[in-house]
Structures are given as C-alpha cells and as structure tokens.
Design a protein around this nucleic acid. Structure first.
Length: 853
RNA sequence: GCCCGGGUGGCGAAAUUGGCAGACGCACGGGACUUAAAAUCCCGAGUCCCUAACGGGACGUGCGGGUUCGAUUCCCGCCCCGGGCACCA
C-alpha cells in the first residue's frame, strides 16, 4: 500500500492518495460492511462477476468487469436489497505447473501467493465483496465437492469411461475437451494444432441434456442474443433420418448394411453413390483383403488429419476411392457404388452418407470430379419470382420448398411433405427411422496434469472400476510432486498416491491419476458462495434456493470468451443438480452481461506488443476511483474500450473538481435549519433542482436499462458544471445564496449519485457533509418528475424539414402559440416569404415544421 | 458460405418512441494566473463556402436507392471492420 502511495502524483486540489488510503484502512476494519444475510426480509439480489484465474496480477479487463459489478451491487444496496456480491479464485490449472517448472516453486505456493496479491489489489480498488464467502477451488474444502459430484454422476450413469480419439495438446501435454479446441488449435496455445490420440478417458454425459440445453435457451431472455446463438450453433441440433442400405456381395456378415444419416431423405431417389468416412468399420473389413485399397484409404485419413490440424477443413480438395462394392437403395432397389471420401467425418452422424449430387454442393463437386451421375429429384416451385428453371448442370441445391419429382410414389409431394412421408415409409418397412443428431459431444474431463481435482476412482484387478467411497473424500492432491511436462499424469509417479486398497475386496488397487478439467470447478462455484463453509454438503439446498430463486443468479457479468465453455458446462451442471434434487432452478443465470474487451492502440493488450496497462500503475498515478470511473466512462460496457492515459487524466480532473466544489461550499449537517419550501427558491435555484432531478432520472434509468454508465458519468459531469456555473447560490458569502438546507440537499444527492462509481471520494464527501451513517445504507435518491420538468423550452422551427429558427415558449405551449411566435421570427419569415403554408406539423415540446409550397 | 455485432468530428463517444446530429470527455487553439513552467480556471471549435466584421449559406451519421412534412433511427440493395460457426451430410 504505502509504496504505491508514495509514487502517486500529488494533485494540489484533491489528494486522492491519502483519502483513498484513509478509507482503505477503515474498510479493512469493517469486513462485515458488505456481508450478505442469508435470511432477510429484504428482497434478495445476487450479482456476480466471473471469478478470475489467479495469474498473479489483475489486468484492466478485470478492473472493468468488477467496476461494472461493483457499481451495480452498490446501487442495489442503496435501493434496499439484500445483496450477495462474492468473489473467489478459479485456482486450479496449467499455468501453476508451468510456473512451477520455470521458478521451481510448488504450484500450491505460487497460486496462493498470487491470490494474496490479487486480493490485495481488489481491496485497494475498493470492490465491495463479501470476503467471508471467498471460494478457492484448489483447496480440499472445495474440490472434495467436485469429487462428490463426480461420484453422484457416476452413480447416475452420467460419468463414464471410454476409449476414443481425443484432442491432445502437445504443449499442455494433456487432453482437451472439444470446447477447448479453437479453430483446430489449443485454446491456450493458439498457434499449436491439436493432435488426435486414442486414449481411455472419463466423460460426462452432457449430450443427455442436449435437447434441454437447446430448448431452454429460449427462456434466457436476459442473455445476449449473441451468446444464445453461439450455444445454439455449438449444440448443433440436426433433424433427419437414418436409412439402411443393404450391402451386396460378400462384405461383412450376411445381411450387412450401411446406415446413413441424412437431413434430406426427400432427395433419396437422387442418390447416385454412398460415401463412407475412411474410418468407417465396414471400410476396415474391405481393406483387410485389399492392401492396394488400404494404402489409398490411409492417404485419405492423412489428408483429413492434416486438414483438421491446419484448422481449415473446408479448404482441402475432395478425394475419394471407389471400393468396387455396391449397396442397395431401399426405396428403388438401385445398386449404388460405395466410395470412401476424405470429406466424410466418422464422428458426425453415422460416418456414412448417401450422395445426392443434384441437391448438395459437396456431393455435386464430388460427382463432377469423378463423373458420377447427377439426377434431379426436386424442382424449384414458383414462389412469386416465377422464372426459376431447371438448368444444366442442374441447380446444385433446392431448399425444402421444392417439389419432389422422379421419386416413385412420392413424386408430386413438396419437400416438406416428402421429408415426413419418406421417413415414415422407411420406418414402416424396417429400413430406417426419423432421428436427431447433435454436434455437441460428451464432455471429456480427464486431464493428464497434476494441478487439478483428483478423480475419485480406483482400479482393482478383481473388481475393476471402483468409485472411492463418499466417506473417504476428499482424495487429497499430494504436495511435492514432480510436475515436469513429459506427458502422462504426474500423479502416476507418486506411489503413495497411486497405490491404494480396494474398498470392495480389500486387495491392492491403483488410483486414477488423471485430474479433472478445471471447468468442472467453475461449473457450480456460484452455489458454493451461498454456503461457503459447509463441510457436510456442497451447499445447503434451502440457502441456495433463497439466493437462486426460480431463475438463478440475478445478474452475471463476464467476458464473452466463456460463451460456450463455462456457460454451457454451468447450465449442464445446474440441470444435473436439479435432477439430483438439490436445486430447484432449471438455469443458473437469469441475466448475463458480457462486457467488451479493454484494448490499447487498437489491439488486445499483450506483453508481446508492449501495450499492457497495469492497474497498479493506474492506481498509483490517478487513484482507484479514477481507474474505475474511467473504465466506465470511456465506452459503453458492452463495447470494446480503447484505453487512453489522457482519458483517465481527464477523469482525475473531474474528481478534483468535485472535491473542490465541496471544499469551497462546506455545508455540514446540524449547522443549518432543515427544510425549505418552493417559495424559498430563486429561479436559479429552481433550475439547479431541475437539473438535479434530471440527473437522478438519467442515472437511475441507466441502471435499470441499458447500463450505459458512460452517460451516467457524463450526467454527473454536466451536473457539476451546472453547479459550478451557479456558484453564487452555493457560496456562503455569494451574491444570491440559497437556503442552506437546499444546498445541503443538492450536495447530498450528488454524493449519492457518485457513490456506485467512485466509492472512495463519495465516502469522503459523505463524511464531510457530517453524515454519520454508512453511505451504503443511505437511500438512492428518488426522482421527482414534477421537479425535473422544464418550465420553458426552445422549440426548433423547421420549414420543409429544414431548421430555420428557434422559439422560446412555456413547456406546455400549444400549437397556436408556437406558430405565432415562429411566424414572428425573421429567419422563418424569410424562408416562407412568397409561399403558402400547406401543412403544419407540431410535436408538443419538441418541434414545429411548416410545410410550404 | 451462414449467423450475430459494429461503421457518427482529429480521437473515445451521445442522441431510450422517426423530431435541433455531435451531449460529456480527450486532444487542439486562444486567454487568465505565474519571473517562467506545471497545475488550475475561463473562452472557442463538424466540414466547406461567402463576409473586413457582425452575420449568413451549403453540405454532413460507410455507399446507392426508397418511405416520410421530417431518417443516425424504418425498408430494399451493396461495401468495410470485429466476432462466432462451417466438407455437420
């Protein structure tokens, strides 16, 4: 603290360093100031900012995020709500291991030191958190409940182990979930392509909830549409049908068939080949007897892998190999050649498609290349344009509005009708059925890393997979583990950890040495805040129900980068907990706000670019209030903010002017007679009062509505400018002093309006006004429409829509008065000279437009 | 390619229902205070044109159309920037 203060630039007017230091010390002595009450008659409000990873120091993005949340929390407190505003640490994860290797410091020690530092920074910034509820995910009293949930999911069949191709980051030396692969690269190493490895891993069955996760997005009206769209895309629901094509010849067992997935069963009469993914099981049978074919298929697999690693799967050229075999189209008994193609993916649908070149771009390209027949079975219908015709080559794609032709009994149906009729027909005849596939895959949670929650599973030679009994939790993560990044789980090198006893047979057992994905930690942490010290359960259900209500956290604030990862896992976790009966809400978050990034010189801040702005530096130079206020003022919160040091300088000047105003006009409670009537106010004082109420309205509306706090701050600046312009009213020895009680009222209101944004200065001024009660317990000022109403307004006068003059009239003036005055205006006269007024448009209080000819 | 945002002075931005475009701030220019500077305070300012000046005029919210007395705002067609998804059958 003191070191920071010494380097602070001294301002001759407002000594932010010593004021902030004084209040910082006081707030440390009153930790209960921001404590939430879990039982209260007041209405509850749960406001939450996404918890940070303890990387070592806050960055400006954090400051912005928390300044928004803190302003809201303070506003809600001042409006009489019982506010829960907690903070914690998402403290497991790979950076701690990297730091351990680099600095030879144990991950635990490194992490806890970072937490201490960042917590001090948060306190210095004056954020009003209830630290009694702090959650630190890397401590056993938290992660034991990760293990508990894992066991519950295992019991319910939601956690399972399977061998499959998984994403492997060679730099992290661990497996990644699909959600952690960004454009084919690792989400932490954006230049490192993810490799595919076949490993046995633990998965959580998020796909069980795919339909509900999609459906409930409709309910989340308090979420940005952007995030909902991203989740919709990610879940990727696709309605279609499965159709079996019987194999001819001697491939596979008798009666073998290939099942394809299609969303366009209405085009099945146009199918001219079957395309298989190179990894398709049938292909394995074929190449077993044909080494020439094998080599070609291997080539296709290599192309696919390469494309995936480059991250541009759409760009590779389509290649295929004819297998020499045929499969029978069940609708028309036609034999179709079976090909293997590099553009067919084994992990979507069934890994097999029917190729309909006339009605699919990719199939069309492929058919052209290999000279496969192209057969049109859907014609465009006349939809008003009227001149669509079938062309040669045929239209590559016709949407569902088309008319089905050349399709046996289905000819003449619309595509929509055919989709239904043909899927039903397939079902009735036992060679297919309607189905739904999802892009969403189960969540792979195993990580071959040390710094995470141990998976509470044992492997016994006799009993196989054996969950750790609940009474034996937590499985403690051992200290003193060698965390070199060699690949393979570091815990496997700790015999004391790995070797255990089977709880079933008492024989020797081996512990699971993988740890959990850290996104497990953050999937439910916000429930823990409601009951953070519970050592019998993750949280008390009734307490969580109080804070979450029916619809979840009232307001969640964080970066859009978690739109899919954290926010989809959290939704899944909540639904699982609901099905377990420990929460009542279907969704964790009622309202979500994603703030924009803080950038500098048009680019994301990074050490490489050397454009990083340090919060410590800003606090030292301008003060915490200024750093916070600027991050609210410089741009609307949902937009990116381009940081400019000269901008925060301006904010510091504003805070200095505020301080000066109060210093020069000291009105202390108890030194004047309270109360004043309207008659005691001069017109100028009434004008001030009007501006005050207009400001209350603007700021209150910003909180209730769009959160454009940049305009809230601007409103405060305007109010201050007005107060300064009317200084004779305020000065005790001015020429036209207003009643002291009035001046005190204005000052009080100003401080209340400033309080959510600049708490240090607000508290200081509040005290200087002689107020004894804590500012957070004071009431937000009430807006009075009558007092805010203008008495006189300037009405713009247009002639044919062009501004020609302005007239000053009483606010409620009617058309005739405004018109009379307008016609008296010289410029208006000149504009209508020699012409006739054919129409008059009058918008009361807004505008007069004379239409002339 | 598809789906979301966004495009307004030198810069960050404002204009909540179609009604004075540019609030507020930054940077800039001028002035006051000072031996001087910094700090602070006051004043000016969208662009272009006319005027010695006072004033006045035209243009102006990415581009082109449209609706309207009136469009940053609504409609149609484009361009550019940012983000997401993508051989998903």
């Amino acid at each position: 603290m003191s070191a920071e203060h010494k380097t602070m630039v001294r301002d001759e007017r407002y000594d932010a360093p010593s004021v902030e230091s004084k209040w910082f010390d006081r707030w440390q002595q009153e930790p209960a100031l921001y404590a939430a009450e879990s039982t209260s008659t007041k209405p509850k409000y749960y406001v939450l900012e996404m918890l940070p990873y303890p990387s070592g120091a806050l960055h400006m993005g954090h400051v912005r995020n928390y300044a928004i949340g803190d302003a809201l929390a303070r506003y809600m407190w001042m409006n009489g709500y019982n506010v829960l505003h907690p903070m914690g640490w998402d403290s497991f994860g790979l950076p701690a291991e990297n730091a351990a290797i680099k600095n030879n410091t144990p991950p635990r020690q490194w992490t806890l030191a970072n937490i201490a530092n960042m917590k001090a920074q948060m306190k210095r910034l004056g954020f009003a958190y209830d630290w009694s509820r702090e959650v630190t995910t890397c401590l056993p009293d938290y992660y034991r409940w990760n293990q508990w949930f894992f066991l519950k999911m295992y019991e319910r069949g939601l956690a399972y182990r399977k061998k499959s191709l998984v994403n492997w980051c060679p730099k992290c030396c661990t497996v990644l979930a699909n959600e952690q692969v960004v454009g084919g690269n690792c989400w932490r190493h954006e230049d490192t392509p993810v490799e595919q490895r076949e490993l046995e891993q633990w998965f959580l069955r998020i796909t069980n909830y795919a339909d509900e996760l999609l459906r409930d997005l409709e309910k989340l009206e308090g979420w940005p549409e952007k995030v909902r769209t991203m989740q919709r895309n990610w879940i990727g629901r696709s309605q279609g049908a499965l159709v079996d094509f019987e194999l001819g010849g001697s491939i596979g067992p008798a009666g073998s068939k290939i099942t394809v997935f299609t969303t366009r069963i209405d085009t099945i009469y146009g199918a001219t080949s079957i395309q298989l993914a190179p990894q398709h099981p049938i292909v394995a049978d074929m190449i077993a007897k044909n080494s020439d074919l094998r080599a070609k298929i291997d080539q296709l697999i290599a192309e696919q892998r390469k494309a995936k690693e480059v991250g541009d799967i759409g760009a590779i050229e389509k290649h295929g190999v004819f297998t020499g075999r045929y499969a029978k189209n069940p609708f028309n008994q036609e034999p179709l050649p079976i090909w293997v193609a590099n553009y067919i993916l084994m992990d979507y649908g069934t890994g097999a498609i029917m190729s309909v070149p006339a009605h699919d771009d990719r199939d069309y390209d492929f058919a052209k290349k290999y000279k496969l027949p192209i057969r049109v079975v859907v014609l465009p219908t006349a939809t008003g344009d009227g001149d669509e015709t079938v062309m040669d080559p045929p239209l590559p794609f016709v949407t569902e509005d088309g008319l089905v032709v050349n399709s046996g009994q289905f000819s003449g149906l619309t595509s929509q009708q055919a989709l239904k009729a043909m899927a039903e027909f397939a079902g009735q005849n036992g060679f297919g059925k309607p189905t739904v596939t999802f892009r969403l895959k189960d969540w792979g949670v195993s990580r071959q890393r040390y710094w995470g929650t141990p998976i509470p599973i044992l492997y016994c030679e006799k009993d196989g997979i054996v969950p750790v009994p609940e009474k034996d939790l937590p499985v403690i993560l051992p200290d003193n583990v060698d965390v070199t990044l060699t690949g393979g789980s570091p815990l496997a090198s700790v015999p004391e950890f790995m070797n255990a006893t089977c709880p079933k047979c008492g024989g020797p057992a081996r512990r699971e040495t993988d740890t959990m994905d850290t996104f497990v930690d953050s999937s439910w942490y916000f429930y823990r805040y409601t009951d953070a010290k519970n050592d019998l359960a993750p949280f008390d259900s009734a307490t969580a129900a109080y804070w979450f209500g029916d619809r979840g956290i009232d307001q969640y604030i964080g970066g859009v980068e978690h739109a899919i990862l954290h926010l989809i896992y959290s939704r899944f976790w909540t639904k699982v907990m609901r099905d377990m009966g420990i929460v009542k809400n279907d969704e964790p978050v009622e309202r979500l706000f994603t703030q924009g990034m803080v950038i500098k010189d048009g680019a994301k801040m990074s050490k490489n670019l050397g454009n990083v702005v340090s919060p410590d530096d800003m606090i030292a130079r301008f003060g915490a209030d200024a750093a916070r206020l600027y991050s609210l003022f410089a741009a609307p919160p949902d937009r990116d903010l381009d940081w400019q040091d000269t901008g925060i300088e301006g904010i510091r000047r504003f805070l200095g002017r505020v301080h000066t105003f109060f210093r020069d006009n000291p009105i202390v409670a108890g030194t004047y007679t309270p109360g004043y009537g309207p008659d005691d106010l001069t017109p100028k004082a009434r004008a001030i009062l009007r501006k005050v109420h207009q400001t209350i309205r603007r700021i209150t509306q910003d909180f209730k509505g769009r959160w454009h706090f940049n305009t809230s701050v601007a409103a405060l600046m305007e109010l201050l400018n007005e107060l300064n312009a009317q200084s004779e009213i305020f000065s005790l020895n001015g020429s036209a002093p207003a009643p002291r009680a009035f001046v005190a009222d204005v000052q009080r209101t100003f401080v209340l309006l400033l309080a959510p944004f600049a708490p240090y200065l607000a508290h200081e001024l509040w005290e200087s006004l002689g107020e004894k009660e804590n500012l957070l317990k004071a009431r937000w000022p009430k807006f009075d429409a009558a007092l805010a109403k203008e008495e006189e307004v300037e009405i713009p006068v247009q002639v044919n829509g062009k501004l020609r003059g302005r007239v000053l009239v009483p606010a409620d003036a009617d058309e005739s008065l405004v018109k009379e005055r307008a016609l008296a205006d010289e410029k208006v006269k000149a504009a209508i000279a020699g012409k006739q007024i054919v129409k008059v448009i009058f918008v009361p209080g807004k505008l007069l437009n004379l239409v002339v000819r």
